[in-house]
Design a protein around this nucleic acid. Structure first.
Length: 823
DNA sequence: GTAGCCTTGAAC
DNA sequence: GTTCAAGGCTAC
């Protein structure tokens, strides 16, 4: 993994060319190896823009690294300096370690996607109707195990905790062999839970944990062979997991860190989703096309030995492991279409027609019924996978009872965000399903209910056409899939659930009718240059009045900007320890190093870190008067939370959602710091000479000098001055963030072209916007882009400083892991 | 808020 | 016309 430091610091003078165009600093990210990023002329997207062409020239640095320093924009001659950081040679060792770690992880990475990803393409419109038969089965066999665990958990808080650990452990073991990254997520999920419980009142992040929220046999049954943990990082974490914290490994992988926070916090980009057409966060009944190409995977309640499924149909053409002829339950494939399995583990595809089943339950095939199969009626007679009640039909993606159907409908339609007072998971049964709606909803998602099945327009009648995306449980996978494949599917199952949950959470934002914080209030000082702050909820996005001169894409980007911001409630909770009861013992991240409240670094470092621009960029900081030794850990944890916010934000971006998960992670690794610092600078536009932190706190250059942060703050001030001079408004700001995020010139990208195209769209939108709104300053677009190299260099300085300041061994979670990874 | 029953309407 | 998965209604 190239590091930022691989780019040699260099600064040039920029001048516009005679044609008025600019060279785009394409290589604004961190790659040591760069490629030409060409933004080809395009007239797409209904945006009238000047054609953009970006090319990157490479320049050999003194240490032999290829340094892209020139981007030719629109045949222009303006040479944009690319600012780098320290010489790569200075960080060669660390980088090497990082790369080695990444290589390990990369090699072990779960296969998430279908090659080609075309299974869900619109060309499959002639497929069968979705669902009808593809759905839940009896959990007769699994109930016992589940109930046993539930009984344990109902023993109280301790019991609950035990169950959670047990499940996490089980899942860890399940995934450890082949899915080290996912396993890391489990650890991080557990670690971040305390964070979350303090952070988000409406829908705590703890609910985003990857560990099953119920005692799910999916994760309990599968017991892969261990010993396949090839990740030193994972191994380290496994060993130290007992404490519930995440000790940093000796050679922490920045990739793993980002991956962890990324997938954990927002798995909305599930392998399934990644294959979909652009996915709208809204709950709309708008996917009829996609529905015809729907693929199904198993519900999570399969019991292979008690399968109620009857296989009566010819196996799909093309063949798959599910089509019979071998060991395992091939009959399942004739009724259930394991999308996730196909996508992630097998790259299989099942022909929809061939897998169709008569919705009435009557056999329409001459194939003999499977001994294990049952009719639809038998299927309906099975217990509801959520509560165990009688199944009434196929509702929102699974076979469920009427009450759970209604509950799911009410919860989604009314955008309820329940919070489990116990922190979950609570038992959900017929007798207890009313007790904890939070856990019940969790289980609905876990079992496969789909948010998109709820019709936004509340249209009645008709057949629903959403995409069904169950995840094959390991109990089903194990006989027919390799442990790798099964684990991949299990991971996808969890991710799918997380995706749904996050989606629901996102849909709840900004809606006053929910129990969530009433609105996505901005956690930072509103910028005076903000010309529009349309904070529409996702459901009403399409109906919101739009300014015609604002490109649709830009508006979409703006619409998710609230995810970047902290709510007032979040800010209040996060900042609480700064001013009151921060005792140190609650250091959620530093449990292994400073959990007792002892100092983790000296006072000087403390003071410096309190005003560290990176922490400041997180939107939170101390005023420097709080000398509590654990403040550093707290602030860094705050920065961790900021990373989570970034993840949530970026995964909701209209462009970003269509990028593969691997590339999303890569992009995020490369740009997270730039994004943070840029937001901090933008926030400070109205305070010349000061970098504005949260809640009105500011840091001046003089203060920075005393803390040894002069260089970084100076650059931040300089960048802020430019932003002020350019009168960067909020739309431009959000567009630039996306452009910074979508750097396609890192060698790690699997689909660099796709990323480049996405960036191109963002560029076009920004250009169209600036031309439309600032016709008197046609150079504004180019000048905005010119600020990105400044941002990069500033970021590099900030990271270096923070890295130096924290080399005393303190454990600061993701942020520190990222820093140690030289990212 | 829950949950059983009813109504609706697109797909077949 | 039938099916069935949506949303609606309403007693509790």
């Amino acid at each position: 993994m190239p590091s930022m430091s691989s780019i040699k610091s260099e600064q040039c003078t920029s001048t516009p060319n005679s044609s008025g165009s600019y060279q785009l600093p394409v290589n604004m990210s961190l790659g040591a190896t760069t490629s030409a990023a060409t933004v080809s002329p395009s007239t797409r997207h209904n945006v009238s823009v000047t054609n953009i062409k970006c090319e990157v020239d490479e320049l050999s640095t003194t240490n032999g690294n290829s340094l892209p320093i020139i981007a030719n924009y629109n045949h222009g001659s303006l040479r944009i300096p690319l600012c780098g950081g320290v010489d790569k040679a200075n960080n060669g060792e660390a980088e090497s370690d990082s790369e080695a770690e990444l290589t390990n992880i990369e090699n072990l990475k779960v296969r998430r996607r279908v090659v080609g990803g075309g299974a869900m393409s619109s060309s499959d419109k002639n497929g069968p109707r979705p669902m009808s038969w593809e759905g839940e089965l009896s959990e007769t066999e699994t109930n016992q195990t589940e109930e046993e665990v539930m009984e344990t958990e109902t023993g109280g808080q301790n019991g609950s905790s035990t169950v959670i650990k047990s499940e996490a452990s089980s899942l860890t073991e399940t995934l450890a062999t082949v899915c080290p990254i996912k396993t890391e997520l489990e650890h991080i999920a557990g670690e971040l839970k305390p964070h979350s419980s303090k952070l988000t009142p409406g829908y705590p992040l703890c609910k985003l944990k990857l560990a099953p929220t119920q005692s799910d046999p999916i994760n309990l049954k599968y017991e892969p062979s261990l010993g396949g943990d090839n990740s030193p990082l994972l191994h380290s974490r496994n060993k130290s997991n007992s404490g519930g914290h995440l000790p940093l490994p000796a050679n922490p992988s920045p990739d793993s860190a980002i991956h962890s926070v990324y997938t954990h916090s927002s798995p909305s980009q599930s392998p399934l989703t990644s294959r979909h057409a652009p996915y709208t966060p809204s709950l709309s009944r708008n996917n009829s096309d996609a529905s015809h190409s729907s693929c199904y995977s198993y519900s999570s309640e399969f019991s292979p030995t008690h399968s109620p499924i009857q296989g009566r149909h010819n196996p799909p053409s093309g063949g798959s492991i599910f089509t019979g002829g071998g060991a395992g339950p091939p009959q399942y494939a004739q009724l259930y279409r394991p999308l996730n399995v196909e996508a992630e583990a097998q790259n299989l595809s099942m022909d929809a027609n061939s897998s169709s089943v008569d919705p009435t339950g009557s056999s329409n095939s001459t194939l003999p019924a499977s001994p294990a199969g049952i009719s639809r009626q038998q299927l309906i007679n099975s217990p509801c996978p959520i509560c165990g009640d009688k199944i009434s039909g196929f509702h929102y993606g699974i076979f469920s009872c009427e009450s759970c159907k209604g509950f799911f409908k009410r919860t989604v339609q009314n955008r309820k965000n329940y919070v489990c007072v116990r922190g979950g998971p609570c038992q959900v049964s017929i007798s207890t399903r009313k007790k904890c709606p939070a856990c019940r909803f969790d289980k609905c998602l876990q079992k496969g209910m789909k948010l998109e099945a709820i019709r936004e327009d509340r249209t009645r009648g008709g057949r629903s056409t959403y995409q069904c995306s169950y995840t094959l449980p390991n109990s089903m996978l194990s006989p027919i899939l390799s442990p790798d494949q099964a684990a991949a599917a299990a991971a996808a199952a969890v991710a799918n659930q997380q995706q749904q949950r996050l989606q629901h959470q996102m849909n709840g934002f900004g809606n006053g009718s929910t129990s969530l914080p009433a609105s996505p209030s901005l956690g930072v000082t509103p910028n005076p240059t903000c010309i529009k702050t349309e904070q529409t909820d996702t459901l009403s996005t399409n109906q919101s009045p739009r300014t015609a001169s604002i490109p649709a894409l830009l508006q979409e980007i703006m619409d998710v900007e609230h995810l970047w911001q902290y709510t007032d409630a979040e800010l209040a909770r996060i900042n609480q320890p700064l001013s009151s009861s921060w005792s140190g013992s609650s250091s959620t991240s530093g449990g292994s190093s400073n959990g007792t409240g002892g100092p983790t670094s000296n006072t000087a470092n403390n003071a410096q870190q309190m005003t560290n621009p990176l922490l400041a960029s997180a939107g939170l900081s101390s005023n420097g008067e709080n000398a509590n030794p654990d403040l550093i850990a707290h602030l860094c944890n705050v920065a961790d939370h900021r990373l989570y916010k970034i993840v949530k934000w970026c995964k909701s971006l209209p462009l970003f959602k269509n990028i593969s998960i691997d590339d999303q992670i890569c992009l995020l690794i490369n740009s997270w710091c730039e994004l943070l610092l840029f937001s901090c600078c933008f926030r400070s536009i109205d305070t010349p000479g000061e970098i504005k932190m949260s809640q009105g706190r500011k840091i001046t250059l003089a203060q920075a000098k005393s803390n040894g942060l002069q260089a970084c703050i100076e650059r931040m001030l300089n960048l802020t001055d430019h932003l002020r001079r350019l009168r960067v408004d909020r739309y431009e700001y959000v567009a630039m963030k996306v452009i910074v995020l979508l750097q396609s010139d890192t060698s790690e990208l699997h689909e660099a072209v796709k990323v480049r195209e996405c960036q191109e769209k963002a560029l076009q939108s920004l250009q169209a916007y600036t031309l439309a709104h600032y016709p008197d300053t046609p150079s504004k677009f180019g000048e905005l882009l010119l600020r990105i190299p400044d941002l990069q260099r500033t970021c590099q300085l900030g990271k270096e400083m923070l890295t130096i300041k924290t080399r005393d061994g303190a454990d600061f979670n993701l942020l520190m892991e990222l820093l140690r990874g030289e990212h």
